[in-house]
Write a protein that binds this DNA or RNA. Structure first.
Length: 581
RNA sequence: GGUGCGUUAGCGAAGUUGGUUAUCGUGCCUCCCUGUCACGGAGGAGAUCACGGGUUCGAGUCCCGUACGCACCGCCA
C-alpha cells in the first residue's frame, strides 16, 4: 500500500493528520532550502512542501517521477484558489522514489503546446492531462447512467460477436482471416444489427449493449475506424416507445452531467429538414431557414435564374439579418469557393440597405425583381441574402453547409445550448450511380411507412421508411428504425434492391430463416457514444474522447498499427501478400 | 480516389527580394534564492531546417516528387 489518500481529497478539516500520498511529480519549485512539489494523480494535485531539514530528500527528484511521500497536513497561510486542495499542503518528512522518468517530450499540463500527432504518439502521457482525462471520465459517467436507466427499465445487456460475418451492403468491412478455414474471413461488425434483431426473435425483448463497431472507411474529425455504439433494441414496440426510452436516457445523462432538465425533442420529417436546412442533421441552435424563391424568378430577366427554374432546378435563399456591413467582397469570394466544394456552380448574393441593393447579382436582376425579393423575404436595412440556383439536392446541400458555416462565423450559435431533434421518415432507398441500382438508405431490414408499402418495388424514389435519426447540435447522434418483421415484406425489399434469391440466401440466409420462426415487431437505435461525449465535453475532435485513437489515415502513432507480420503467421493463415512493383 | 494547408533544437513557433554564425518562447542541465503555486535571477547545452531529386556561384527560402500530420469533398447500409 503506497497511499492512504489521493492527491485530490485533503481539505482544511484534515489539518494535523499524518498522511501518505503517492503520485506523479507535476511541478517542482525550488526556492533554495525550501522545495515545493505539486503531486498529481487522477484525482487532483496536492502541494507537498519540503522544508530546509528535508529538502535533500527531493534533490534528485524530477518532473513525472512517481514518488511516495509521508507528512503532516497543514493549512496554508496563502491558499491557492485554483486548486481543490489549495487550502492545505503536506509538510513532508519522507520521500521514496517509486519510479524515475525521462524528460517528457511534451509538457504535461492543461495547456500544452504539443500538437496532436505528438500527443497521439505519447498518448499515455496525454491522458495524464486534465483535458483528456476528464473526457474519459465523462465517457464513463455517460455509460454508467445509460446502464442504470436501461437496467431500470428491464433491458438486458448482451454481448454479441466481434468475429462475425461480412455484410455485403454498406461500409467496407475489416476482415480477419480464418486459420482453420483457409481462404475464409470473419468480418468485424459494422454494428450488431443482425444479432440484436436475432435476440428479439430469441425473446430477449429488451436488449442493449455498449458495442464496439468497425468500419473501414475514410475518416473525419468526427469519425474513427472503430467506435462505440450504445445499441438498443425493443420488441412489441414502435417509434413512440423507442423515442420515449431514448429521451429518458438523454434526459438522465444531461441531468447527471450538465444539471439540465428542460430538454425538448421536436420532430422534423426528412424532406422538411432538407427543404429548410439543406441537411438531415440541422443545427437548430440558430434559425436562418432556407427559403425557396424559385417562383419569384421563373420568368426572370436574369437568364441563369430563369433557366434554372425552367430546367427543373430550384433557387434557395438564406437571409442573415443586419450583417451586410460585416461581410466584405473577399468574404463572399470565400463563401463562393466554399459552396463549389459541394458542387454548386455559383453563389449569388444581394445586400440591402436604405433602399439600395448591391452584391453579385445586383446588375443582373432588374429593380422590380429585387424589390419583389425584398418584399417576399421582408428584408430590412443591412440584411444579406445568399442564393444558390441549381439542381434541388445541390442547392439544398450547398446552401445548408453555408448556413452552418455562417452560423458559426457570425456567432449565431449559443455554445451552452443543446438542441435535439428527431428526423423521421427517411427515404427507403437511394439510387447508386456507381452500382446502377437502388440501395437501402438505412439498411435493408428497415420497415417502409404503412402508406408506402405498395411503392416498395414500383416507386422506389418516392418510398419513405420508418427510419429515424436523433440529431444534437448538428451532429447525427443516433440512427434507428422500425424493422421489418414479416418475411413477405422483407422479400419485396430485397426484390427492390435487385437481389437474386441466390444472393439473398448467401448474404442473409440464416437471418431470413429466423424470421420464419416467429418474429415480434421490433425497433431500435444505435447511439454514437463518442459523438455524445464530444458534444457534452465541448470538443469537435473525436480523438479527444477516445483513449487510444487512430490518425486520419487509420494509423496508430503510438503502437504503429497496422504492422507487417512474420511469414510464419501468413503461412498459418494461408495468405500471400501481393508484391507491389 | 480528390482538394487545400502544414513539416525548422525535446516541444511550440519566426525566418524579408535566395547571400556570411538560423531567431524567439518554453522545456532540459548547472549555480543562487525560505512561501512559491505559470516562482524569480544568472549561466549553459541542444538543429543532417521531414526525405529524395532539380534550378543556382550559393537553397530553410524557388521547382518537382515521396512520406507523414490536419481539415474538407467523395465514401460512411
Amino acid at each position: 500500500m503506497n497511499r492512504d489518500h489521493t492527491c485530490g481529497e485533503l481539505r482544511k478539516t484534515d489539518e494535523g493528520k499524518y498522511v501518505r500520498l503517492a503520485g506523479w511529480v507535476s511541478k517542482r519549485r525550488n526556492l533554495g532550502s525550501i522545495v515545493f512539489i505539486d503531486l498529481r494523480d487522477r484525482y487532483g494535485i496536492t502541494q507537498i512542501t519540503f522544508d530546509e531539514a528535508h529538502s535533500d530528500l527531493v534533490k534528485d527528484v524530477r518532473n513525472e517521477y512517481v514518488i511516495e511521500v509521508k507528512g503532516t497536513v497543514k493549512v496554508k497561510e496563502t491558499p491557492n484558489p485554483k486548486l481543490e486542495t489549495g487550502e492545505i499542503e503536506v509538510l513532508a518528512d519522507s520521500c521514496i522514489v517509486l519510479s524515475s522518468a525521462k524528460t517528457t517530450p511534451m509538457i504535461i499540463a492543461d495547456e500544452t503546446d504539443a500538437l496532436e500527432d505528438l500527443r497521439l504518439k505519447y498518448r499515455y502521457l496525454d491522458i495524464r492531462r486534465n483535458p483528456i482525462k476528464d473526457k474519459l471520465l465523462l465517457r464513463d459517467k455517460i455509460t454508467t447512467v445509460v446502464r442504470s436507466v436501461l437496467h431500470g427499465d428491464d433491458f438486458v445487456e448482451v454481448e454479441t460477436p466481434i468475429l462475425s460475418k461480412s455484410t455485403p451492403e454498406g461500409a467496407r468491412d475489416y476482415l480477419v482471416p480464418s486459420r482453420l478455414y483457409k481462404g475464409r474471413f470473419y468480418a468485424l461488425p459494422q454494428s450488431p444489427q443482425q444479432y440484436k434483431q436475432l435476440l428479439m426473435i430469441g425473446g430477449m425483448d429488451r436488449y442493449f449493449q455498449i458495442a464496439r463497431c468497425f468500419r473501414d472507411e475514410d475518416l473525419r474529425a468526427d469519425r474513427q475506424p472503430e467506435f462505440t455504439q450504445i445499441d438498443i433494441e425493443m420488441s412489441f414496440a414502435d417509434e413512440e416507445d423507442i423515442f420515449a426510452e431514448v429521451e429518458k436516457v438523454m434526459k438522465a445523462i444531461f441531468k447527471e452531467v450538465k444539471g439540465i432538465d428542460n430538454l425538448e425533442f421536436p420532430r422534423i420529417k426528412y424532406v422538411d429538414a432538407m427543404d429548410k436546412y439543406g441537411s438531415d442533421k440541422p443545427d437548430l441552435r440558430f434559425g436562418n431557414e432556407m427559403i425557396n424563391v424559385s417562383e419569384l424568378f421563373k420568368e426572370s430577366e436574369f437568364g441563369v435564374f430563369r433557366n434554372c427554374v425552367s430546367e427543373g432546378g430550384v433557387i434557395k435563399a438564406l437571409i442573415f439579418k443586419n450583417v451586410a456591413d460585416k461581410l466584405s467582397r473577399k468574404k463572399f469570394d470565400e463563401f463562393t469557393e466554399f459552396v463549389k466544394v459541394y458542387k454548386a456552380k455559383a453563389l449569388a448574393y444581394l445586400k440591402y440597405d436604405k433602399n439600395e441593393f448591391s452584391g453579385s447579382v445586383n446588375n443582373a436582376l432588374p429593380l422590380n425583381e429585387k424589390e419583389a425579393l425584398r418584399d417576399f423575404l421582408k428584408l430590412e436595412n443591412n440584411d444579406v441574402v445568399l442564393m444558390i440556383a441549381d439542381q434541388k439536392n445541390i442547392a439544398e446541400t450547398a446552401l445548408g453547409a453555408l448556413r452552418k458555416k455562417l452560423g458559426e462565423e457570425l456567432g449565431l450559435i449559443d455554445k451552452d445550448k443543446y438542441c435535439f431533434e428527431w428526423i423521421t421518415e427517411f427515404p427507403m432507398y437511394e439510387y447508386s450511380e456507381e452500382e446502377n441500382r437502388w440501395v437501402s438508405a438505412h439498411h435493408p431490414f428497415t420497415a417502409p411507412r404503412d402508406e408506402d408499402v405498395d411503392k416498395l418495388t414500383t416507386d422506389q424514389a418516392n418510398c419513405y421508411s420508418r427510419a429515424y435519426d436523433l440529431v444534437l447540435n448538428g451532429y447525427e447522434l443516433l440512427s434507428g428504425s422500425v424493422r421489418i418483421h414479416n418475411s413477405e415484406m422483407q422479400a419485396k425489399v430485397f426484390d427492390a434492391l435487385g437481389l437474386t434469391k441466390e444472393q439473398i440466401k448467401n448474404k442473409f440466409g440464416f437471418f431470413i430463416e429466423a424470421f420464419e420462426y416467429g418474429a415480434p415487431p421490433h425497433c431500435g437505435v444505435g447511439i454514437g457514444l463518442e459523438r455524445l461525449t464530444m458534444i457534452l465535453s465541448g470538443t469537435d475532435n473525436i480523438k479527444d474522447v477516445v483513449a487510444f485513437p487512430k490518425t486520419a489515415s487509420a494509423y496508430c502513432l503510438m503502437s504503429d498499427a497496422p504492422n507487417t507480420v512474420d511469414q510464419d503467421q501468413l503461412d498459418f493463415l494461408g495468405l500471400d501478400i501481393r508484391k507491389e512493383d
